[in-house]
Design a protein around this nucleic acid. Structure first.
Length: 653
DNA sequence: CTAGGGTTAG
């Protein structure tokens, strides 16, 4: 309870403190405490008026002579020195104490030096060089003092020093306790050193600390950060009594390893009778992230409900995650509802809302929100601009986008990062200004990454620019980052201009390099369960019905005027073959399943891992009109809201 | 005589 109590002002520290003076100093502190203790009540509280600190300090000293200190509250000078150290917040206040400790040999007092060390090494002072100096003056540092140093290093810019100190304490014959190992592991995680972590793990086992659940969760974190999920899982299974945090760590392991569906399933498993573990706010946060990845709107709503029941729905970080989840699930109105209901919106809230508008195709609203946030006195940061610029690129607002890009560094002093450049390249590329986009990439003072080249390649595909497309693929190959999708894009560029020779060449190249194409995969959620389809999928339990339904839809849509779009996704197959391949794209299977399994009129929400193709885009457009269904498809980069034969996006027509 | 450790937002 008293942990949070702080002094109203930092006690004045005498320049040259001698041990004889410590007593009066101590008396000051005791008095200080009695003054601020609500019991017994003071008839006159000197600190109630703001800005009168100096004045009250004077009163305080004047009153000292008259005020008697109750004997029971008097403490030893040593303990008071510790309290004094604990209450310091600045390095300048530590210096005279340091001198005093050295002069009086109190440095040998482990408790005193530990307190001093943790003040100097951890926040708010956090001076590593200084604490290192102090540490070297301690004659025989003990485990706790080492731990403090390791902890400080693990949070610093040179975490590897933490591991070094961990080894050093062993050399000095000290046996690290679980806490030492846990801090050393943090250091390993920071530098993602799996070998270092495994060594610490080995020591942990030899020291017999394998039943320490806090240490085990840190180890899980290590393995999951180093992409060793099975090891992390094994550790979790061996924890005898798993608390909520242990579950949370497991969930975050699943999320980090892209096993989103498994992460979601843990929400119910942890609450089951076997484990009887209550999800907390962090669990909810992780669940919402999982929902956003999976487009699992219904499950997200369930988590939202759980949050409301358990009183977490007011937390700002959770609301921000809710905004992101709802908008990334294509439910912009719900996202906006949460946003509007928030009392204290920060940059993150505003940016989340702006990005939400952006991916759902509401460019104007995104820009309005950007203006509004500044009126509310919230300063945009780098990520806010990512949202604004992507809004402009998705909605084809070229002039506005360029203006924001310009103002970003000029008015807001934010240097463009790779994401900003990516948005602008996309913006220029879509608008057909391919050369300008190319020049922009060449002029960046950051090294272009594969994503940015891929963006330009996509624009080359839209505008059928063979020359630049080839150059861009060259850059990707140079970066050793060329993926299957890039070759497919190049292939499509060639076929869109009918260059079959080149198409053949690329195909051969892909075969030689044994490049595996990523299978298209679409998901649709029904009653909280996420169903997954890949092209030509035959694994779904209702596949026969789904295929039959798809055939029926195809014949209905043909009547409505839909034609299989052959010209742009041309591979040099026969026309019939082409039609066959295209008709079982994963998103079509998912949509067919949606029509099959939901009552008429229900909105169909599908998420796809790749970009939607022109044919499927047409398919969805006609279907939204013919079947009178709203269809919302989330592809790799954005949402397509289909209604009455139209789409919210301007990518295809 | 007591000290210190785990998950988490756009």
């Amino acid at each position: 309870m008293n942990k949070n109590r702080t002094w109203c002002f930092p006690p004045v520290i005498p320049r040259h403190l001698h041990i004889s003076q410590t007593r009066s100093f101590a008396a000051t502190l005791v008095e200080h405490r009695t003054l601020h203790n609500p019991q017994p009540p003071q008839h006159h509280h000197p600190f109630q008026i703001d800005g009168s600190k100096l004045e009250s300090q004077k009163n305080h000293h004047n009153q000292r002579e008259n005020r008697s200190i109750p004997f029971s509250q008097a403490q030893s000078p040593r303990q008071l020195l510790i309290s004094l150290i604990k209450s310091t917040t600045q390095k300048t206040h530590l210096l005279p104490i340091h001198a005093h400790i050295l002069r009086t040999s109190l440095i040998q007092d482990h408790s005193v030096s530990l307190q001093f060390l943790s003040r100097a090494a951890l926040s708010p002072v956090r001076d590593l060089g200084y604490s290192r100096l102090f540490f070297s003056q301690i004659p025989e540092p003990n485990v706790l003092q080492y731990n403090t140093m390791i902890r400080a290093y693990s949070m610093s810019d040179s975490p590897e020093e933490g591991v070094y100190m961990y080894r050093e304490m062993r050399r000095r014959g000290l046996c690290p306790d679980p806490v030492s190992s846990s801090f050393a592991l943090r250091s390993c995680i920071r530098v993602s050193s799996l070998e270092g972590g495994i060594q610490v793990h080995g020591r942990v086992l030899r020291d017999g600390h394998q039943s320490d659940s806090l240490l085990m969760t840190t180890l899980m974190d290590l393995y999951s950060c180093c992409e060793r999920f099975p090891e992390a899982r094994k550790l979790f299974d061996d924890i005898p009594r798993k608390d909520t945090v242990a579950w949370n760590v497991l969930i975050s392991c699943f999320l980090r390893n892209k096993r989103t569906r498994d992460a979601i399933s843990l929400f119910d498993i942890m609450q089951s009778e076997t484990y009887a573990c209550e999800p907390d706010d962090v669990t909810c946060l992780l669940m919402l992230q999982a929902c956003a990845n999976l487009n699992a709107l219904e499950f997200g709503e369930r988590v939202h409900g759980y949050m409301e029941e358990h009183g977490y729905s007011g937390a700002r970080n959770l609301c921000n995650t809710l905004i992101s989840m709802y908008s990334r699930c294509g439910s912009l109105d719900k996202a906006y509802g949460v946003f509007k209901g928030m009392r204290d919106k920060n940059v993150i809230s505003w940016s989340a809302m702006i990005s939400g508008f952006a991916i759902n195709g509401y460019g104007r609203e995104a820009i309005d929100a950007f203006e509004e946030m500044q009126r509310m006195g919230v300063q945009p940061d780098a990520q806010t601009f990512t949202g604004v610029l992507s809004a402009c690129s998705h909605c084809g607002l070229v002039d506005e986008g360029m203006m924001f890009f310009d103002r970003m560094s000029k008015d807001f002093r934010i240097e463009p990062n790779i994401h900003h450049y990516g948005c602008v390249v996309d913006l220029l590329g879509r608008a057909g200004m391919l050369d300008r986009a190319y020049q922009l990439i060449l002029s960046m003072n950051i090294k272009p990454d594969s994503t940015i080249w891929r963006t330009l390649l996509g624009a080359c595909k839209i505008h059928g620019n063979v020359n630049l497309g080839e150059r861009v693929v060259g850059h990707l190959i140079e970066l050793k980052a060329a993926e299957a999708g890039d070759y497919v894009l190049l292939l499509n560029i060639y076929s869109s201009v009918g260059n079959w020779e080149k198409v053949k060449e690329v195909r051969k190249l892909m075969k030689e390099k044994a490049i595996q194409t990523t299978p298209g995969c679409s998901t649709i959620e029904l009653k909280g369960i996420v169903h997954e389809f890949v092209s030509d999928d035959v694994s779904h339990q209702r596949k026969d019905e789904v295929y039959m339904m798809l055939d029926e839809i195809n014949s209905q849509l043909k009547i409505a005027g839909y034609e299989v779009e052959i010209s742009s996704e041309l591979h040099n197959l026969g026309a019939e073959e082409k039609e066959y391949v295209l008709s079982y794209h994963s998103e079509k299977l998912a949509i067919a399943f949606g029509i099959l399994a939901t009552p008429p009129g229900t909105t169909i929400r599908v998420a796809k891992n790749l970009r939607i193709c022109v044919d499927c885009h047409n398919f969805a457009k006609v279907l939204s009109w013919a079947y009178n269904r709203e269809v919302i498809i989330r592809d790799r980069t954005r949402f397509h809201h289909f209604r009455d034969g139209h789409c919210s996006c301007n990518d295809y027509w």
